[in-house]
């Protein structure tokens, strides 16, 4: 076969790594941009209220003349911080429960399995709202709420993996070599669950920010003065009927794109780690 375009004749693996890298870069950039946007860049400017998207304001401006692009970036950055924090916490819970259950077995395992079923059987949004309210709302409330509801599926995956490894001959041999359960969990099992863990964290992330946005939109999440995406969207509802479409359109689109992007990173990582797809 003749190679046509040497520049683009990269293997799927290289393309995957390339796009993942690009997404990660974008991710970090949005996060950093949100943090470094100063408060005075979001100044009220009553001469420029409701300007349509254009050269001055790429995403338009709102009812007090704040630039919507900057507000969106700031909002995304806050959402991302929430997403990252809550997916990391739920991953930590998942590792802990996923390993403790099978390794120590008996009552511990039954408790954890019951808890997983319990959390999965109740609608997420309602639990998050309840937990968030109970924790006094705000960023803390949302993070705790999301973390409490999103550890289950990853725990199941890790638990299944650990159960399998527990009955493989090398861990059983390790017991005969006089190694402790703690040693087996740390040395034998942990390396096996790292790929699942990373993929799991990344895949929980879009869930987390979408939940954050929806709950804030419903008014149970972040307070109105935080420029979170949910807040922006809920405010824009008031002006949507009067034809101010850009107030909801751009922030909403960015939210969807960000979720898709992170989801793609997760799928890419899985593709790279899975031995069945890793050799093309």
């Amino acid at each position: 076969m003749r190679k046509k375009y040497t520049l683009f004749a990269l293997g799927i693996r290289k393309k995957t790594i390339f796009s993942t890298g690009l997404f990660l870069l974008l991710f970090v950039w949005v996060m950093a941009a949100g943090i470094f946007i100063a408060e005075d860049a979001l100044m009220v400017d009553l001469e420029q209220t409701f300007s349509k998207p254009g050269m001055d304001h790429l995403f338009g401006s709102d009812w007090v003349g704040r630039d919507m692009l900057l507000r969106t970036l700031k909002g995304l950055s806050i959402s991302m911080r929430i997403g990252l924090l809550s997916s990391l916490i739920s991953a930590a819970v998942a590792v802990l429960f996923g390993i403790i259950g099978p390794v120590f077995g008996g009552a511990a395992d039954r408790c954890i399995s019951w808890l997983i079923d319990f959390v999965l059987s109740v609608p997420h949004t309602i639990i998050i709202i309840l937990i968030s309210l109970a924790c006094g709302g705000g960023l803390k409330g949302i993070v705790v709420g999301i973390a409490c509801t999103h550890w289950t599926s990853l725990t199941r995956v890790i638990r299944a993996e650990v159960l399998q490894i527990l009955h493989v001959e090398y861990t059983q041999l390790s017991r005969r070599f006089g190694k402790s359960k703690w040693y087996i969990a740390k040395e034998h099992m942990f390396p096996h669950i790292v790929p699942q863990l990373v993929v799991g964290v990344v895949l929980v992330f879009p869930h987390a920010i979408l939940h954050e946005a929806s709950i804030t939109f419903l008014g149970f999440g972040l307070p109105a003065h935080e420029p979170a995406i949910g807040v922006i969207l809920s405010e824009s509802m008031k002006y949507l009927t009067s034809g101010k479409w850009w107030l909801a359109f751009f922030p909403g689109l960015c939210l969807v794109l960000l979720s898709l992007m992170v989801d793609k990173i997760g799928n890419n990582l899985e593709k790279l780690w899975n031995p069945n797809t890793a050799h093309d």
Binding site: G11, R13, K14, I17, A278, H279
Partner: peptide, 11 residues
């Protein structure tokens, strides 16, 4: 023969 990735991008 098989083409295989050993580590990272080393094929």
């Amino acid at each position: 023969s098989f083409s295989q990735y050993i580590q990272g991008l080393k094929k």
